[in-house]
Design a protein around this nucleic acid. Structure first.
Lengths: 198, 198, 198, 198
DNA sequence: TATGAATGAGCCTTCATTCAT
DNA sequence: CATGAATGAAGGCTCATTCAT
């Protein structure tokens, strides 16, 4: 039943632990997850955890960084690739994509956006913000988005997407929630000229 | 060695504990608050806690109910009283009021909106929602608010106010945050006719 | 097998824990003693330990204080009572008594005089020193003891007694060790006049 | 990813580890020293430690042997060389020298004279004793030292020197401590005839 | 009802020692 | 011989909850 000692490169082991942590946290949430749950899921001994993460909080920080970096690098690439569809359509597409991302976070949401590390604002969180800001600025330059205070608007946008995701996961009425959200977004951010030109 | 037993009516004792809990949680947040901190603050013995709350989570639920009920009863009364100023102005006033309420929550925010009781959706939360829905419906009837799906919009509105409060508490730029928020709200919810009539 | 919950006054419980600690440490020494060993010996639950001692080191400090205070109060009383035998005889008697005390310390010696709390010099340790200093000063006033730098001499005396005890416990030659020790003490501290008068 | 394997002769590697251990223990004491601290200081891998020492305690034993052997071989040589100054002067000189040695031990003191290996009495400790015994016997033969039970006196002498060193390191009053110590030693061990002959 | 001493499951963290490479 | 990743048994400490008084 006990597998022999598996000797990996530090990088490989770290990734295994991180991915096990993400899987377990997504499934059960941080309140119901212990260090040992992670190491069990990763096929490692309990003590191995502390070779890679000085403490539980450090793991959460690493998890957040990993998730956001993964998501953002995808988003950035996708958004640039979709430029030909027109900024607004690409933007709406990303919004839906982001909501699906949130919905799939499960217990990771609480783990990563609340609790002990909620204030540790570091690189990856800042640049998630930076990505949204950049997208909005693109839209403004292209005259597809109303000129807004992008730094503040990014936060608002983030929370609108977030609460839409929450609403979907609680009510199950996906289309209805998306419709209301897009109503908001179009009124708020879409350049009115376009409507008049229709 | 004289034990001081303060006999109170059950209701009075319960309220003392509840208010002590609110004060302590606001100050230190749930992660740093113990049952004993509450009873100390309330001038009661540790065991007394469990005569009034079956468990820690039950306290949090009661705290949430107490806060929301208090806030809502004020809001409802105030909103009706302010009807003569016009719905939209009263609405904007309430938004600012709500943001200040959030800002004053301090550690209660985490205690009440996240953590173990985050999903226990019960009466008080629902009726908070109901209050917002009712306000929006008032506005729609009065032709001051665009006709929206009020149930969904209430959630969105809630999150917009929430994230504005968060933004203020993190950045400190109150006016800037409010400005962006009202830009959003006016575009989204205000009846466009009125602007054209100006 | 499990005894029911025993509710004691804090003082009584603290004494039980302290005495259990002394018994266990004497028997097995600090390196081989755990918090749980103490509580088991005291008939208490593990967590009870921490109601009375904030940490392991605090227990050791309390043990030291308890032992020294007990020993010293006995010594002071006995020494005054024995004044009629002449200071020097009373002094020699105390020396033997102290050696027996050390021999009976067993594992407490290491626990209390070495390891983590070795430098915490507090009341009880200081007054142990003060007691020896006082005894020597008595002897000097009575012209029974050579005038020496009592503060420094107390340390030396302490270590001479200590090493004699160690020697006895290792070699088993009690009389031989005592003889050599008294040879030293008499040469060093006894007023030479007396010998010449013989 | 090039692993640097420094191949040394076993003896050289062992000495490197031993000296690294001595340096680290002197600096930080045994309670704050880990196997890895030793190997880091020695530029070796953690596992290498166990190629040369079966366990941590074995290291401590080896450290003690190394220190005492080094000290004693110096002392023996020096003492013989200083014979022309007269035994008593050479003896006093050695006492001061020994005290300085103790003072320089730092954390090694606790590591080597207390804790887990305190009772492992082996060759090197015994022969340290033997050296002192030999020195005393020399003095007795030369009629410079009172005839005493050298085996027991050696222990007493050791502890007197030790406690003087402790006193100096705690109080800082070196001269005062040495004066009291020599007062003791001269009374105790010096041949009284000589004083009368002066 | 009220008290607060007592409980003990549970968790994080350390680190000597092992062993696959 | 050497390496350093991996192991897992310990053990200190916390604190929600219980219960004798």
């Amino acid at each position: 039943m006990v597998t022999k000692r598996r000797r990996l490169t530090p990088d490989a082991r770290r990734v295994e632990l991180l991915e096990a942590a993400i899987a377990v946290l997504r499934e059960r949430g941080p309140a119901d997850t212990r260090v040992e749950d992670i190491t069990n899921a990763a096929g490692a001994a309990k003590g191995t955890f502390y070779l890679y993460f000085p403490s539980w909080d450090d793991l959460l920080v690493a998890v957040r960084a990993h998730i956001l970096e993964t998501y953002m690098s995808d988003t950035g690439r996708r958004f640039e690739a979709a430029a030909h569809t027109g900024w607004w359509d690409a933007f709406e597409y990303e919004c839906v994509h982001f909501i699906d991302f949130i919905l799939e976070l499960g217990g990771l949401h609480e783990a990563v956006f609340h609790g002990p590390i909620a204030d540790h604002l570091i690189d990856s969180t800042l640049s998630a913000d930076a990505l949204i800001v950049w997208i909005l600025e693109e839209g403004i330059v292209l005259d597809a988005c109303r000129p807004v205070d992008t730094a503040v608007a990014a936060r608002l946008l983030f929370s609108v997407l977030h609460s839409t995701a929450d609403g979907i996961s609680q009510s199950g009425h996906r289309e209805r929630a998306l419709e209301s959200m897009f109503d908001l977004l179009r009124r708020w951010l879409r350049m009115p000229d376009r409507e008049e030109m229709q």
